[in-house]
Structures are given as structure tokens and as C-alpha cells.
Write a protein that binds this DNA or RNA. Structure first.
Length: 649
RNA sequence: GCGCCCGUAGCUCAGUUGGAUAGAGCGUUGGUCUACGAAACCAAAGGCCGGGUGUUCGAAUCACCCCGGGCGCACCA
């Protein structure tokens, strides 16, 4: 499809240049709203009309009449106020498109950072959105041929971990060996403890001193605090990996803040920042004694400034983030040590940073493009990180630092009621409530998954497709994951999701299971066919060997004119263009939508044409050809969304 | 106060870097099961695209101004 569009654009560009001496760029191609307007439409006559001061319709007419014939077109038609509508030779197009088109590999490593959950409590629904967006994006980049490295940053020395550690030591008064014996789900236990500690501070703010002490002890490796912090954060990171693995999300590397500190990444970045005068020491004013970064254009009133190093000499989060971002681009001349952390059931290994390197570790970092999947609330800080790179003179790296921003997941009022959450009057008045770990307010990822699983298992059992409970369970899990991942992918990234169980637990209509079901139906056709006629592929190949549409049988020729089939071919042909668009605009939902539309059209096709009972051999092969192409593109799109196709549904 | 984002059918959302008659799903009403399984399909009802002004051959889309809502703007992360 892309090739066809490019050749049409070239033909139009050349024609317009020679006939009107006008250079048009770009030449926009559109998909007409209805098939009666053709397969592609070019509004270029509108552009020309402006330059030539003539009526667009007249120009469109003229071009349609005078342009030399183009391969693959049946006709070119002026329409509406001045469109040029393209009508394709269906057999010619189907012929080319049915063959899978290889994608050439790209060079330059892409680093995608996502998930980044504080290792102090269970993952919640907001983290799931991050991971689903990040992982789908990674899959799409890989589809386009990019080498991708997935990083999940672990802030194991921050306030949030310190809070839970404070809770263990000062509130629960537990030693490490007691903590190790906690039998309940550890991330859930910490979820409650974290909320409890926050309350505990609130009722007596002098208790915040405990937090300060703990924070300090973690940074300096003071025992037993440091070991407790290490135990807690590592155990929770493991829990997060398992939760995310349930929905098919895996990582390559877990870079930890502790190594950024201990390997003195910051020191080196700090020296460079000073050397290149990207930051200045404030000698007066409220920020006296701090190193600050100033940015913003000088023409506008006040330049903004951000504290990078506090007056007590410690570095802020943004400072550490600048150092980390520099490392990602290979600008730091330092590197982490790496150790294997966990091996997934599929054999893939996640590595974690350490101080001492493991001899044969893979190479990480040194990307040429970096995407940080972080929610929109951190836009300001992400902007500062990029400004930091710019201030250091790394303009190219600044250009290649992309904040993949998306909106948060909030809780709908109904959802809060269902969870038994009592809201303050202020919160109750809002259209939705922000998730808050500190308040213990939110839907835990594993809970949601369990509920989805229970519901899909019920559906699976009702249908009685499986004798083996293990198979039924696997099937139910694939469907539950499909529902969840599709639900989180279908919203455009700038819209806040007001989470609602009823919607998330739905398996009908615009949902993951709907798309999965279409793919399963398509597979069923081929499974049955395999029993009836194991040599069917030979017949289909023979059909595709026919050069001219006239060689098809009468019924097959008639089918070629059926828009139901034709639409499916067109949708399938657009898949790689959709992926490209999704990646360029950072909009995963584009692909989710396309998958749904394809599934919808397939279901129409499925109802209209009963393939296996088709008597005409050529017609049957044509139907099979369309069904196979559609199935392949559905499977492909689902895979790019991280959704598996169940065996039965 | 400043900055970013959102406002489209009863509800939840799409709307292809300005294009043809604004589309889905849920919900509602009424139809379709002889199994390539109905987790599906068909049909109906439902819209001053928050309001206004402008730019344009053309605006849900762009600009400006309002109105309503969300989120940021720490020597927290």
C-alpha cells in the first residue's frame, strides 16, 4: 500500500510540475469515507486552485483526463468539489498485497523506559496503563525493524521505599528476619503498611524525622536499615515483574538508583554541568547555596530556574535523572555493572545493575533515541531533563529524548463505591478521583487481573470447550489479558481514564475478546478445512498464479466486486502504515482501533459468505485468500498489542 | 497567578498533520442460532461537536476570547 501511494504521489508530482509548473509537496493521500469514492483520494486540486486561481473541480477534471495511465488503476475520477478519486484494479492489488511484505531493519538502538514503579508497594491500575502503552510501543518499534532495549527504572533509595522501611522498623518494630517471615503477599502487605505509615506521620509530624534518618541510612549503607531496604525493594521488584509478566510485559534491564549514586554517575554529570556552565551556584536570594539550572528564552520576562543541587550538597531527583539520561545516550564515560536478575519462563533474561560487573553481561545503554513513558504529571520535570542535555550542548540527544506522555488512570465514583472507599466531601464532588498510594486508594493490578480471570473462566467453563482444567485456565488467562490490554490501549493517551469495573470487565463489543474471537473464527475455518482438504493451499496458490482477473471463474469474478471482501483486503494492506502512524504520533490506540475495525468487517464477511460450503473452486479459493490475509493481519495486530489468540472461544 | 491537557449521542470514547452525509461500543427497543459455535450479526431511536469571533473554497480539527473540568508549577520523587 505504501509503495502504491508513493508511486501515485510521484506521478502526480511529475504531472503537476510539467503541466502547471507548480511544485507540490507534500501530496496528501486520504482514505475516502466510503468505497464508492474509490480506494484513495487526493485533494491536490484544492492546493493547485489556490496557486493557479482557478476552480478546483475544473483542475481535478483536467488532471484526470490528461495524466498518463498509471499501473494498477482502473480509473481516476474527479469528484465532489475537486477530489481526485483513485479506483484500483482489484485483482492487480489483491495479487500484490496478499504476499507478506518484508520490513527492512533500521539502525540505531532505541531505548524505551517504562513501568518505573516505586518498589515499595503493589502495582496498581495506573502502572498497568504505563506498562501496556510502553510494551505495545516496544512491540511496534520492533515490528518496524528497530533494535529496542527496554528499561524499567527502579528508584530503590527514594522516599517511598524509606517510608515502608520506616514502617517496618519504627511502627511494626520488626527486624529483617521477622520481615522475611511475612507469609502474606508481600507487595499487598507493603501497600497497607505504606498507607498506614502516611497516616502515622500525619497524626504526629515529628515522626517525619524517622523517615529522614532512614533515608540517610539507606544512602550510606548503614545497617540494619540498608539491608531491610534492599530486601524490601528487591522483593517488590520481583513482585512487579511477576505481575507484569502476567500480561506479557517483559524487560531487558532494571537500572537502579542505588548504582547511580554509588558509582558516582552524578558526580561526573555534575562536573560536566559546572564545566559547561549549565548550572550556577546561587550566592544570594532564597536559593542561596543551591546549584540551579536556568532555562527559557531570555527575551521573555523571567527565566525559569530549577534547583539541581540543594544547599546541603545533596542532589535532587532531576539531577539524578539528567545523569541517567546522559548514560542512556552513552555520554557519561561511566557504565554500570550488570548481573542477571530473573529468567522468564520463555527464557528471556532481565538484568539488573550492580556495582561489580558480571564478566559476560550484554551491553546496555548508548541508545540513539530514548523514549521515556511517563505520565503527563511529570511533563515539567521531563522538560527540565531535556533542557539539561541542551544546556550541556548535547543538542542532538536533546532532540532524540522523547517524553512519551500519557494521562493518568483515575477512579470513577461508582468504582470507589464498589471498592468501599469513603470519599471526602471534596473528592466526592469530583468527576473522578486520583489514585493515591499514600491513601491506599486504588485498584491493585493483581486484584483486577484476578477478577478478569475469574470472569473469563466462568465464560470458558460455560462453553465447555476444554476437558483439561489446565487448558481452560490458560484459555481464560489469554482472554482476560486480551480484555485488559485492549481496554488500556483503546484510549488516546491524552484522555484520563476514569476506571470502571463494569467497562473493564466487558468481553463484548469494542473489546479485546471481540478481536480475539474474530481471529479464532478465522482459525476455525482453516482447522476444519485442513480436515476436509489438506491440499487447499495448493489450490489457493494456483488461484494467485492467475495473472488476469478474466481468468477467474464467473462466481469468483463476482466476489471480486463484493465490497465486503475488498474492504478486508484494504484494511489488511494498511496495517504497516497504521503502525508507522502509531509510532510517529505515540498513539497506540490507532492500532487498537484498526484491529477492532478489521475484526468487525471480518465478522460481517463471515456471516455473509460461508466459505467451506462454497461450490465454485475458484470462488472458494478467493474467499480463503481473503480470510487468510485478514486472519494474518488480525494476529499481527493483536501481537503488537501484546494479545494472544486463544485456541478456542 | 503561570503552564500543559480535556470538553463530540443518555454513558464511555474514535474522528487519519483542515476535507465528501460527524463514527464506534455500551445502554435502550425490535429482529436473527442446522455448528466455518450467538463472546456474533441485522435494524431503529439518539448530535446547535461547551459558547462566541475570526482565518479558509471548506472548521469537530487552526487562531483569539470566554465558560466548565483535570493536572502541574518544592532545597518530595
Amino acid at each position: 500500500m505504501l509503495k502504491l501511494i508513493e508511486s501515485l504521489q510521484a506521478a502526480f508530482r511529475a504531472h503537476v510540475k510539467s503541466q502547471y509548473d507548480v511544485k507540490l509537496d507534500p501530496i496528501v493521500a486520504e482514505y475516502p469515507p466510503r468505497l464508492e469514492f474509490g480506494e484513495l483520494a487526493f485533494p491536490l486540486a484544492f492546493e493547485l486552485a489556490k496557486k493557479l486561481k482557478r476552480k478546483p473541480r475544473q483542475i481535478a477534471q483536467e488532471i484526470a483526463e490528461r495524466i498518463p495511465p498509471i499501473e494498477g488503476l482502473v480509473r481516476l475520477e474527479p469528484a465532489g468539489a475537486g477530489y481526485l478519486n483513485v479506483f484500483l484494479d482489484r485483482w492487480w492489488f489483491l495479487h500484490r498485497e496478499v504476499k507478506a511484505q518484508p520490513i527492512s531493519p533500521e539502525t540505531g538502538k532505541v531505548i524505551v523506559e517504562h513501568t518505573n514503579i516505586n518498589p515499595n508497594k503493589a502495582a496498581h491500575i495506573g502502572h498497568l496503563r504505563n506498562a501496556v502503552i510502553g510494551d505495545s510501543f516496544v512491540r511496534q518499534l520492533r515490528f518496524l525493524g528497530y533494535p529496542v532495549e527496554v528499561q524499567n527504572y527502579i528508584d530503590n533509595t527514594g522516599v517511598q521505599v524509606a517510608d515502608v522501611v520506616t514502617g517496618f522498623i519504627y511502627l511494626r518494630k520488626l527486624a529483617l528476619r521477622n520481615i522475611e517471615q511475612i507469609s502474606e503477599k508481600f507487595d499487598y502487605y507493603c501497600w497497607d503498611l505504606y498507607a498506614e505509615v502516611s497516616q502515622w506521620y500525619q497524626s504526629d509530624t515529628s515522626r517525619l524525622e524517622f523517615r529522614q534518618r532512614v533515608l540517610h541510612e539507606i544512602e550510606n549503607g548503614h545497617e540494619p536499615t540498608a539491608s531491610i531496604a534492599e530486601y524490601v525493594s528487591t522483593k517488590i521488584v520481583k513482585a512487579h515483574l511477576l505481575t507484569m509478566n502476567r500480561i506479557g510485559v517483559q524487560y531487558d534491564l532494571l537500572p537502579r538508583e542505588s548504582e547511580i549514586l554509588h558509582l558516582k554517575f552524578w558526580e561526573q554529570a555534575f562536573n560536566l554541568l559546572k564545566e559547561r556552565q549549565a548550572i550556577q551556584l546561587e550566592v544570594q536570594g532564597p536559593n542561596r547555596g543551591c546549584w540551579v539550572m536556568k532555562f527559557g528564552s531570555l527575551e521573555t520576562a523571567l527565566p525559569e530556574s530549577k534547583i539541581i543541587v540543594r544547599s546541603n550538597g545533596t542532589v535532587t531527583y532531576v539531577g539524578k535523572d539528567i545523569a541517567y539520561q546522559m548514560w542512556k545516550f552513552g555520554l557519561l564515560a561511566k557504565d554500570f555493572g550488570y548481573q542477571p536478575f530473573y529468567t522468564y519462563a520463555n527464557g528471556h533474561q532481565v538484568w539488573m545493575t550492580t556495582i561489580k560487573p558480571t564478566p559476560q553481561s550484554p551491553r546496555f545503554g548508548s541508545g540513539s533515541r530514548v523514549y521515556n513513558v511517563i505520565d503527563a504529571r511529570q511533563s515539567y520535570l521531563q522538560k527540565i531533563v531535556v533542557e539539561g542535555l541542551r544546556a550541556l550542548g548535547f543538542n542532538q540527544q536533546a532532540e532524540n529524548s522523547v517524553h512519551f506522555s500519557y494521562e493518568m488512570v483515575a477512579l470513577s465514583p461508582r468504582c470507589c463505591a464498589e471498592l468501599g472507599i469513603e470519599l471526602t466531601a471534596e473528592d466526592a464532588a469530583k468527576p473522578y478521583v486520583e489514585v493515591s498510594g499514600r491513601k491506599g486508594l486504588g485498584v491493585k493490578a493483581d486484584d483486577l487481573l484476578d477478577r478478569l480471570l475469574a470472569k473469563s473462566r466462568e465464560e470458558v467453563d460455560r462453553r465447555g470447550n476444554f476437558g483439561d482444567p489446565a487448558e481452560a485456565s490458560r484459555n481464560a488467562s489469554q482472554i482476560a489479558v486480551g480484555a485488559l490490554r485492549y481496554f488500556l490501549a483503546r484510549f488516546s493517551r491524552n484522555s484520563v481514564i476514569a476506571f470502571d469495573f463494569q467497562e473493564a470487565l466487558n468481553f463484548e463489543g469494542e473489546t479485546g475478546p471481540y478481536v480475539q474471537y474474530s481471529a479464532v473464527r478465522a482459525n476455525n475455518i482453516f482447522r476444519k478445512l485442513e480436515e476436509q482438504d489438506p491440499n487447499w493451499e495448493r489450490d489457493v496458490e494456483e488461484l494467485l498464479g492467475l495473472r488476469r482477473a478474466e481468468d477467474l471463474s464467473g462466481p469468483a469474478q463476482a466476489l471480486l466486486q463484493d465490497d465486503t471482501l475488498w474492504e478486508l483486503i484494504l484494511l489488511a494492506a494498511r496495517v504497516s502504515l497504521m503502525v508507522r502512524q502509531a509510532v510517529e504520533t505515540l498513539e497506540i490506540s490507532t492500532l487498537a482501533k484498526h484491529a477492532f475495525t478489521t475484526a468487525q468487517k471480518f465478522n460481517v464477511f463471515y456471516h455473509k459468505h460461508h466459505i467451506l460450503s462454497e461450490q465454485d473452486r475458484r470462488a472458494k479459493c478467493l474467499l480463503l485468500c481473503v480470510a487468510r490475509k485478514t486472519r494474518d493481519s488480525l494476529v499481527q495486530m493483536l501481537d503488537l498489542l501484546g494479545i494472544e489468540v486463544p485456541e478456542k472461544m
